[in-house]
């Protein structure tokens, strides 16, 4: 039973990793650049949520969509104004710019007097509630994280599978030149991909905030979401979620059974093992062009 309890904790943490990893994968698939600011986007999302709830006094359920919207706009503009001008430069340049965006985001937040350098409590209304399933006790916060992640994944799947815009995004990631030939507005859709990634980061941030507090350095969680994306193959959306869950569970188990300190190393050990066994990741594919 104790094991199950630990597993549930790991799964809920893994969902957060998965959501951030999804952001990595989405942007990588669309633009072939790794967005190292993904963790910072999550941090901004959490601060957004904090702002909406303390300054505007919105209830928690209204904070979530508002933060998603705000971060979506932020992501859209970041792509359009910061990244698009350097399109066509080597991928290296793009990656450096995303790292820069992350630093700037963290710097700007800490510059807000009285808020940026503090650690804030962001309480959800269901803070103390628990679900009891026999001997099993699940915190409401964890249950909400798990539930929301699965809803979000379902929504994303439907978007990519059944909508014209979603299929077009897939098309762009598979063959950008051909997408141009078909008259698909590649640049606008790339901005939209950034908006979706940033929106998801906001969801992760607002969900995580009640568990870990809100502070300027919470974006470093991205460093653990990155291995999650690698495990999933970096090109697969379900892979990102599965990777996130694996990292979360491994971390939880390592924290429970192994001595202090192993918890933080465990995700990277898993990634190293994965890279040795399956360099393409769990869901990675290699597709060759037929001539």
């Amino acid at each position: 039973m104790q094991l199950l309890q630990v597993l549930i904790g790991g799964i809920s943490q893994g969902c957060i990793y998965g959501l951030i990893a999804l952001g990595f994968v989405l942007i990588y698939k669309a633009t072939e650049a790794v967005n190292f600011a993904q963790g910072e986007l999550m941090m901004l999302g959490a601060f957004c949520g904090l702002g909406f709830s303390t300054a505007l006094g919105l209830p928690y359920w209204a904070v979530l969509p508002c933060s998603v919207l705000a971060m979506g706009i932020f992501g859209f503009l970041t792509e359009a104004l910061v990244l698009r001008p350097i399109l066509g430069q080597p991928a290296f340049a793009l990656i450096m710019v995303t790292i820069g965006v992350g630093y700037v985001a963290r710097g700007l937040i800490t510059m807000i007097p009285g808020i940026g350098t503090e650690t804030h409590v962001f309480e959800a209304p269901f803070h103390d509630e628990v679900i009891t399933l026999g001997p099993l006790v699940i915190g409401m916060e964890q249950a909400v994280i798990i539930g929301a992640s699965f809803l979000l994944c379902g929504g994303l799947f439907a978007l990519f599978r059944y909508t014209r815009v979603g299929v077009a995004m897939q098309a762009i990631s598979q063959n950008q030149l051909a997408a141009y030939y078909m008259g698909i507005p590649v640049k606008r859709l790339n901005s939209l991909v950034w908006a979706i990634s940033a929106g998801m980061a906001a969801v992760a941030g607002v969900l995580l905030a009640p568990v870990t507090f809100v502070h300027a350095n919470m974006g470093f969680i991205g460093l653990k979401a990155f291995p999650a994306a690698v495990i999933g193959g970096f090109e697969s959306l379900p892979g990102a979620i599965v990777g996130g869950l694996i990292i979360g569970i491994v971390e939880a188990l390592a924290g429970f059974y192994l001595p202090e300190g192993f918890k933080d190393v465990a995700p990277y050990v898993v990634v190293l093992a994965m890279l040795m066994i399956r360099p393409h990741g769990l869901f990675g594919t290699s597709m060759r062009k037929r001539v």
Binding site: R164, V167, A168, Q170, A171, Q174, N175, L177, A178, A179, Y181, M182, G183, I184, M287, K289, R290, V291
Partner: peptide
């Protein structure tokens, strides 16, 4: 419309989705 050299289809999309992308 331009039919590019070397086909340039969207390899992981279904044939139908490829065609629908042409009508984007």
């Amino acid at each position: 419309c331009h039919v590019p050299e070397g086909r340039e289809v969207f390899p992981m999309l279904s044939v139908l989705d490829n065609l629908m992308m042409g009508a984007y």
